[in-house]
Design a protein around this nucleic acid. Structure first.
Lengths: 330, 330
DNA sequence: GCAGACTTGGAAACCGCTTTCCGGGGAGGT
DNA sequence: ACCTCCCCGGAAAGCGGTTTCCAAGTCTGC
C-alpha cells in the first residue's frame, strides 16, 4: 500500500508538505511543490488511509444508520433520504439492519460509537420495553458524551433529536375520513402491541371512532409485515372497513381477501398507512396516509448534524389519501 | 472520550495487558488482572477506537457495498443478502448508492479503498462504456493491489469474482415458455441500450424467438424503472405478448395498460424478470424469471472474502415462473 | 538598505491501539 | 536443590496520518 511517506519521498518534500497538499489544510503550499506532490501521488496511485486520518483528526466522515429491514420499502425510503442528504455533505454511510431485534440496535450503537462515526440515525419504531429503552438510552448517552450526534425517526423516547410522524393524528384523520364515507363497523389489523408506532396508529384510529360516537373497532394483533396482515385479515369478524396499521400489512390483507373471493372495496374497504411508493400500482389502489419518508430521513440527518444543543422533536403530519380500496358501504 | 490508557491506569495495569483483555488477543491474561481490567472498562464505559485498531492492525472489519438505488427492491434484496452474510462474519457494512451514475461508482471504490475496507461489492448492471469500464477496473486494481478484495454482482466485465445471473438464458427460456403458449408477436420493453443487463435479457429473448423461427420482437428502449416501463408500453404496436426486462418495468407497463382499459392477460400478456418479492401480491400476478437475489448477494460476499486467487465467475440460473399475467392468445 | 510582518517548508509530537521483545517467577523434571 | 521451560506482565516501537512549533525566506514600508 502506498503511504504518504512514499509520496513525500518521491516528490522530495516533507511529510507535512505532502499532507497539506493532498488532504486539505488551511495552509498554503507553493505551486512548484504542490505540483510535484500531486504528480507523485498520481504516479504512485496514493489513497489516503482514512483510519489514520480519523485517528489523527479525531473525527471521521462517516455516519451510521440503523434500520430494521432494508427490504421493507418503508425503511428503504427513509434510508435513501438520509443517504442522499449524507452524500451532499460528503459523508459516507454505514448501514446496520437489526431485523427488529432491539438488542441488535443497542449493539449497533456501541459498534458505531467504536467507529467514532459523526452521527447515528436510529430509524424505526421504538418498542415499549422500559428495560430495552433504558439500555439504548445509556448506550446513546455514552456515545454522545464522547461528542457523537444522534437522531431518531420514530418516537421521542430516547432524548435525542427526533423526527416523529404524527401517527395518532394521521390515523385519527383517516378514521374520520372513512367514517365520513359511512362506515361504522371497523377492524384494525394492529400489529404487535409493543411496537409503539403500531400502537399509536391503532390508538389514534380507535380514539377518533370513539370521539365520533362509533363502536370500538375489532383489534387484531399480529406481525407488522405482509404475512401479519394476511393472517390478521382472516380473523376479521364483521367489519365493513379494515385499517391495517401499515401499507405492507394492508397488501397482505388484500391478498387474503382476494384468495377468499371477498371483493375490495365492494364487500369490504381496506386502508393502510405510509403510502409506500413501490405499491402505488397495486390493484385496488390503496387508501392510506402519506408520509414524506425521504424527507423525513433527510431531515433526521440534518437534525443530527445540527449544532443545536436543545433536543428538537419535529412532528411530521401525514396526509390522508383516499383511493379505490375504500368506498361507502352498501 | 475514554481511552485504553484510562482503563489501564484505573485498573493499575499496562496498556498491553488492557489491550489483551479487551480487544481479543492470542495471549492469555491472568484471572485477577483480567477481572480488574474488565471492571475498569465497564465503570469507565470504554469503547475501543476502531480507527486506531484498524491502523494498528492494518485491517478493518468493514466491507463496502455499492448499489445503484436502495429503494429499488432488486438492490434492496441483493444488499440485504450481502448484509446478512456480513453480519454472520462479524463485519460492518458501508453502503453507497450511485443512483446509476458510473462516475459515482468509481468514486466510491476510491473512497472505500481509502477506508481500507476488507472487501467491496459492486452490485448492479455494468454499462457498455469502455472508458468507464476501464477506469473502474483501474480503480479496482489499485484497491486490490493494496490487498483489497472485490466481487461483483452482474456481468463479468471487471476481472473480479462475479455472481452473474444468467440473463440471456433466463430470457430465452421465458421466450420459449411464452411461445409455447402460442404467442408469436412479441414486444420487448428493453430498457437502456447501454445497460448490459437489459441488453442481455433483450438479446436472449430475441435470440430464442429467432431460433424458434418466430418474427423478431418490437424492441422499445427507455429507462430501466417503473416509469420507463409505463412509457414504453404505450409504444407497443401489435404484440400479443410483452416482455419487460425487469419486474418494476413490467409493473409500469401493467399500470399503463390498466389506464388505457387494455386487459391483462385477456388482451395482452405481460412478463417481467427478477421476481421481486414486494410485488408478489400484484394483480394480475406477474409472470417472471425468478432470481435468488438474497443468495446472490450473500454469495458475492463469500466470493469476495474467499481466499481463492483465481477469478471465479458464478452463473446463477433463473427460473421461469408462469403466473396469471400471461395466457395463450385468443 | 533594514526592521518587522508574512509566507512557506520541515522536524517532531501526538492520535489510540497492537504486538514484538524482554524479563521475572513458578512449575516440573532429575 | 538446580536448571529448563513456560506463562504472563510491561516497555516500547510502530501503524499513517495531522498539526504545532520553528526557522528561513520573502515582502513591505520608510
Amino acid at each position: 500500500m502506498v503511504t504518504l511517506e512514499d509520496v513525500a519521498r518521491q516528490a522530495g518534500v516533507s511529510l507535512a508538505t505532502a499532507s497539506r497538499v493532498l488532504n486539505g489544510s488551511t495552509r498554503q503550499v507553493g505551486a512548484t511543490l504542490r505540483a510535484r506532490v500531486e504528480q507523485a501521488a498520481d504516479e504512485l496511485g496514493y489513497r489516503a488511509n482514512v483510519a489514520a486520518q480519523t485517528l489523527a483528526r479525531g473525527a471521521s466522515n462517516v455516519i451510521g444508520i440503523v434500520v430494521h429491514d432494508l427490504t421493507d420499502p418503508y425503511f428503504a425510503a427513509l434510508a435513501d433520504g438520509a443517504m442522499r442528504a449524507a452524500a451532499t455533505e460528503g459523508l459516507l454511510v454505514m448501514v446496520g439492519t437489526t431485523h427488529r431485534d432491539p438488542e441488535q440496535e443497542i449493539a449497533y450503537v456501541a459498534t458505531l460509537n467504536a467507529q467514532r462515526v459523526r452521527a447515528v440515525l436510529l430509524v424505526g419504531s421504538r418498542v415499549a420495553d422500559p428495560d430495552v429503552t433504558r439500555r439504548l438510552r445509556e448506550e446513546l448517552a455514552r456515545y454522545q458524551s464522547g461528542g457523537g450526534r444522534a437522531a431518531c425517526v420514530g418516537q421521542d423516547l430516547l432524548g435525542v433529536d427526533t423526527v416523529a410522524p404524527a401517527n395518532k393524528e394521521g390515523a385519527a384523520e383517516l378514521a374520520r375520513a372513512l367514517a365520513g364515507l359511512g362506515h361504522t363497523r371497523f377492524a384494525v389489523l394492529a400489529g404487535p402491541p409493543h411496537l409503539v408506532t403500531a400502537a399509536d396508529r391503532c390508538a389514534g384510529f380507535a380514539g377518533a371512532l370513539e370521539e365520533m360516537g362509533l363502536p370500538a373497532p375489532q383489534v387484531i394483533h399480529g406481525p407488522f409485515d405482509r404475512d401479519g396482515g394476511h393472517a390478521a385479515a382472516r380473523e376479521v369478524k364483521d367489519a365493513t372497513c379494515v385499517f391495517a396499521v401499515n401499507d405492507v400489512m394492508a397488501v397482505g390483507a388484500l391478498a387474503a381477501y382476494r384468495e377468499r373471493g371477498v371483493r375490495v372495496p365492494e364487500d369490504v374497504s381496506v386502508a393502510g398507512f405510509d403510502d409506500i411508493v413501490t405499491l402505488r400500482d397495486h390493484v385496488p389502489a390503496l387508501t392510506t396516509v402519506r408520509l414524506p419518508l425521504k424527507d423525513m430521513g433527510a431531515r433526521a440527518l440534518e437534525l443530527a448534524l445540527g449544532e443545536e444543543d436543545a433536543v428538537v422533536v419535529e412532528q411530521v403530519a401525514g396526509e390522508v389519501v383516499l383511493r379505490e380500496s375504500v368506498r361507502r358501504p352498501v
